[in-house]
Design a protein around this nucleic acid. Structure first.
Lengths: 201, 201
DNA sequence: CAAGATACAGAACAAGTTGTTTTGTACTGA
DNA sequence: TCAGTACAAAACAACTTGTTCTGTATCTTG
């Protein structure tokens, strides 16, 4: 790739990130991005069709990086060790976040964090499916599999969000503990109505 | 309130809802709302300062209605019956949604559903706090109370979202069952590290 | 029912945004 | 070195936003 192109692309991403951490996405104009990146108007539109496409590509750049490395981790498919494997994947993600590659933390804690948390969640779903669901490990519960996958991924994203909003005071290990406690029953595959200790009706 | 004012206000809300169920919030212009509502430009701005304020008031109208009735329900503070009370509050909310007052379901399932789910969640948090947290019922867990409240409310919202996206095929009772199974451990107040069956490390 | 108050419609306005086109310049890679 | 490419700058139409003005219709209350 042409050095000029890469330089411009980086400048746009960088400028966009700066603006995103300061003000609402909807209220950021293309003109502001252009000014912050110090490029010409034509140049911006040569790189990105619209502001929305820019956001999409930024998200892909950020999260594909994170989840791809997690995808590479070997999934352990023994039922007991499953919890350790789960642990290691989620713990790995938290540690990765803590390193704050690409200044992703600013985006996950700013006014626009919901945009990025949404992307994070959808990537996480794919990760969980590839690690567990494909092997049928999530099928032993009385809950529907897609309900389960959604519950686990959204719980993790909410956990991360909670952690960041508390300035990440706790170590990643503690957060992993919280998270696993919260979703423990569904991972254990228990919860069939007959055996359940509680009776809702 | 002046009949003319109420009529205009309703026309704006109605037009806005129609547009929201069809296209992305960001791409709806004030002019489109004006045209759909068949009112004058001046009139719109006499009622709402901006499109964002209109959204805010619409959300308040929708969700205050729902949670206010739930707030009125008597909270049962016995530890065992707690689960039934929880049950009845959440089940009540689901049944309420099923009745589709104010055509809220269209908004919860359209392209803009995240906007409304966010509002729903924040109202839900207040509801949970007023019903349980204020009495210290959520303090017996090893998880931080605000983490718990967030986990419960977001899990419920995700459950609702999952339900709607599946065209609400299951009865509200079944969904309540799913939800309570998913969050069972945190409500049981167990999960103290010492007694927990799983060891993350 | 009359009369002052109020809500509304319509038009016009400046200021800003979006996405495109055109022209000329500077850089890159082979 | 040189052809191809990326870029800057300026101008453009079409659209959006929020305001102001003028005149009309409707409401409330006395």
């Amino acid at each position: 790739m042409d050095r000029r192109q890469q330089k411009t692309r980086d400048a746009i991403f960088s400028a966009f990130s700066v603006l995103l951490s300061k003000k609402n996405y909807n209220r950021i104009s293309v003109q502001e991005i252009i000014d912050e990146a110090n490029i010409g108007r034509t140049t911006f539109y040569a790189h990105f069709e619209t502001k929305d496409f820019l956001l999409k590509e930024l998200c892909e750049e950020l999260f594909n990086h994170i989840t791809d490395t997690a995808m590479g981790l070997p999934a352990n498919h023994n039922n007991y060790i499953c919890k350790c494997a789960t642990d290691s994947v989620f713990l790995h993600l938290l540690k990765h976040l803590q390193e704050n590659d690409l200044n992703i933390l600013e985006l996950l804690s700013c006014e626009n964090n919901e945009i990025f948390l949404r992307y994070f969640k959808s990537n996480l779903k794919r990760l969980i499916i590839s690690q567990y669901a494909e092997n049928g490990e999530l099928r032993n519960s009385s809950l529907p599999e897609d309900y389960l996958i959604n519950h686990i991924s959204s719980s993790f994203v909410e956990t991360v969000s909670w952690w960041i909003s508390h300035n990440m005071k706790e170590p990643p290990e503690k957060i992993t503990e919280y998270f696993l406690q919260a979703i423990e029953p569904v991972l254990n595959g228990k919860g069939n109505n007959e055996n359940s200790a509680f009776r809702p009706f």
